[in-house]
Design a binder for these strands. Structure first.
Ligand SMILES: NC(=O)c1ccc[n+]([C@@H]2O[C@H](COP(=O)([O-])OP(=O)(O)OC[C@H]3O[C@@H](n4cnc5c(N)ncnc54)[C@H](O)[C@@H]3O)[C@@H](O)[C@H]2O)c1
Ligand SMILES: NC(=O)c1ccc[n+]([C@@H]2O[C@H](COP(=O)([O-])OP(=O)(O)OC[C@H]3O[C@@H](n4cnc5c(N)ncnc54)[C@H](O)[C@@H]3O)[C@@H](O)[C@H]2O)c1
Lengths: 229, 229
DNA sequence: ATTACCTAGTGCATACATTCACGAACTCCG
DNA sequence: CGGAGTTCGTGAATGTATGCACTAGGTAAT
């Protein structure tokens, strides 16, 4: 154990580490052993200085004049993200999305495995999805503690998302990924991230509309307010 | 149409407008007609000043001492986001996710409708998903132009995502929503947004790990999404 | 009308993020 | 060994976002 730099990583940089990680894994598969910030930047579609600064939060893992050793950097990012282990996750809601997620293999390849799926609907109980049997929502706490689960996924309709969040919190889960299009409130200290398809589409809608207004989605923000009509 | 303020909306604010919009729609359903920035902020789990500033980019639609009229504000946000119309979208890739999306009704309720689903795999062609028949990827251009589609969704495996993106661009699509966990490159002027489940989970993983290291996931840093209310 | 009381809108300070540009550190080659 | 060439790490400048705290503009009651 040489050292553990352990500065806190800024949110913005944190959001890019998984991207670099995926690229590095791909590079390893292509037998590439060294990579420069310039190359990484190209592959991640970002600025090279940003790559270097992002990586500098992890420690000093590059070699000047050379670049980064792919495997070593891969390991360091994984370690920093806590991906040395595979995290057990539970899914709340065994509907279309919940089942798709449970069946989805891509999740397992990136550091997670589904150890439980629960639903409130009796007709769903007992069904086998993604190798696990759907159990009743009341058993959530038991599942979470017996399998040491700390990450939960909400895949219920929006109107039940808060209820699902509450039960996850009660079960001792500290991090929640929310697919329901609603804001959930959780106690301080619980992390929530959301994935909201419609929200993203609506942002695209905005850009499409401004494009059609002749007010381009603007590269540099040329500020000259060309009023539409 | 009195006036159209038409300043360009900052990215950060833009990302919150769909949230306010959803809340406002819910309020209307609950027969609430007026709302203050304070209440909206509470419901959206953000700061009230932020709500006011975000809304100020649209124009001056509130009434001091009173608040905002729910229906009027709803209309203004919809108009700004281009949600007066329902946008036609095409889905590339009719696998698990593509089918789930095509079947998903939530998308229609929020301003979009699927007019085409294409796949490269012959065995998928002709299948009926979400009310439309899967057609061959080669027909993408024809579908896009005949239905005036400007938004495309990539739901192919990562290794085919660039190919899918290229075909969408060739078909004249200007905005792309990418579900494949890979960076796609597109010509200048084409908008891309991504939804990456594993990436979000990996961020949660980081926070779980730091939590266990005794170095708390820190309150204040809930900048973009991670609510710690 | 006047006063008391709200709440939107916003200027400003602060915080956070991005990018440039340059010195430091390493390799390679003659 | 020394100089040329490369690429990292980072200070400083710029750009963007947040949130406080105040002003402007509205309501309501007397
Ligand atoms: N289907 C998609 O393609 C898609 C895409 C993006 C987002 N979403 C969102 O994902 C969520 C789920 O979508 P879906 O299509 O799977 O819906 P669905 O109706 O098919 O499934 C929801 C499931 O959640 C269960 N449920 C409800 N309350 C529960 C509770 N408290 N505890 C446990 N289980 C509970 C229901 O019994 C049902 O089986 C929705 O919020 C939707 O907006 C879906
Ligand atoms: N399944 C999930 O729950 C889930 C969740 C999140 C993200 N994703 C991502 O979504 C993507 C799709 O996942 P999936 O589970 O649906 O995969 P899948 O293999 O079931 O489906 C992919 C489909 O895309 C088609 N395809 C491939 N190349 C194409 C092309 N050039 N043009 C048209 N069609 C093409 C294939 O024929 C196949 O039918 C993947 O990138 C995956 O990582 C999936």
């Amino acid at each position: 154990m040489s050292d553990t730099p352990r500065r806190r990583i800024p949110e913005a940089a944190l959001g890019r580490l998984p991207i670099y990680l995926r690229i590095l894994v791909d590079l390893t598969n292509d037998d590439v052993t060294q990579v420069s910030s310039e190359q990484l930047a190209e592959l991640a579609a970002v600025n090279a200085a940003k790559v270097r600064k992002d990586l500098s939060y992890l420690g000093t893992y590059g070699t000047r004049g050379v670049g980064y050793e792919v495997k070593f950097l891969t390991y360091q990012i994984q370690r920093e993200l806590g991906l040395n282990q595979s995290w057990p996750v539970v899914i709340v809601g065994a509907g279309n999305l919940g089942q798709a997620l449970a069946n989805f293999t891509g999740i397992a390849e990136r550091g997670f495995h589904v150890v439980g799926v629960v639903d409130k609907d009796e007709s769903k109980i007992g069904q086998l999805v993604g190798g696990v049997r759907v159990r009743h929502a009341d058993e959530l706490q038991q599942i979470a503690s017996s399998k040491a689960v700390s990450i939960g996924i909400i895949a219920t309709p929006a109107q039940h998302a808060q209820e699902a969040a509450d039960s996850l919190v009660r079960a001792g889960i500290g991090s929640i990924m929310n697919f329901a299009p609603t804001v959930i409130s959780v106690p301080r200290g619980v992390n929530v991230r959301k994935v909201d398809l419609a929200l993203e589409l609506q942002i695209l809608s905005y850009y499409e509309q401004t494009r059609n207004n002749g007010l381009r989605a603007v590269e540099t923000g040329d500020s000259s307010d060309s009023v539409s009509a």
